[in-house]
Design a protein around this nucleic acid. Structure first.
Length: 208
DNA sequence: TGCCAGGCCCTCTTTAGGGCCTT
């Protein structure tokens, strides 16, 4: 998939991991992703991956991914090569992207790859565009915005599916405020804009 | 043994502290 600046054409992805920090030795155990083109889901990617170390009882309980399941999975390096082919140079979206970015870069570094496209964060965008939500956890936003969900949480593809629905809803909320669709670059810029400048930016994005 | 991240964002701020998010 090649890069485009259409905000509705990108790859929304999510990692499940052994913990919070690859710098502390944590590894990925599952990746899920949804490719959308023009706002329509056209392809999906999901794979468990064997990190080579046992996961804690907490993570088994939190994700439902057991050590027995991971024993039968392909190594991280093999799965990440397949994901890299799936993602290509596409722009990427994740919920709390600073977290997924660290794991993506760490796993890619092990196979001498780097992310191809830009990365936007649905959590930062939602904080700006849904300020009245009770909080900005993915599950809360799904409920608050009445987004589709099969009730599965903390599995990579299910979370990526919900994040893709959230991303498209955020773009719709912006579209309601102006005559033009925003670009992916606009959304990256929005994520970097503070509260004081937000209304001015949204006005610029929607009416430029 | 004990502890463990990091970026964003608000405020009783900026010479800082703490909650929110992700697993």
């Amino acid at each position: 998939m090649t890069a485009t600046d259409d905000a509705r054409t990108c790859i929304i992805f999510d990692f499940e991991t052994t913990g919070l920090s690859p710098a502390q030795g944590d590894r990925s155990i599952e990746i899920g992703a949804v490719r959308i083109e023009g706002g329509v889901p056209v392809a999906r990617f999901q794979s468990l991956m064997d990190p080579g170390v046992p996961v804690s009882p907490f993570i088994e309980e939190y994700t439902g991914i057991s050590n027995a399941m991971l024993d039968e999975a392909e190594p991280c390096e093999v799965v990440m090569e397949r994901f890299a082919l799936f993602a290509g140079e596409a722009n990427l979206v994740a919920h709390n992207a600073s977290f997924d970015r660290r794991f993506l870069e760490a796993e890619y570094a092990r196979i001498d790859r780097q992310p191809g496209g830009s990365l936007a964060c649905s959590l930062l965008a939602a904080r700006r565009l849904c300020p009245t939500a009770p909080n900005h956890r993915l599950g809360t936003l799904v409920e608050h915005l009445d987004l589709p969900s099969d009730g599965t949480f903390h599995r990579a593809l299910a979370d990526a599916e919900m994040t893709s629905a959230l991303w498209l809803r955020l773009l719709d909320l912006l579209a309601e405020r102006g005559p033009r669709d925003v670009t992916f670059s606009d959304m990256v810029r929005l994520c970097q804009t503070n509260k004081a400048d937000l209304n001015k930016l949204v006005d610029q994005l929607c009416h430029a």
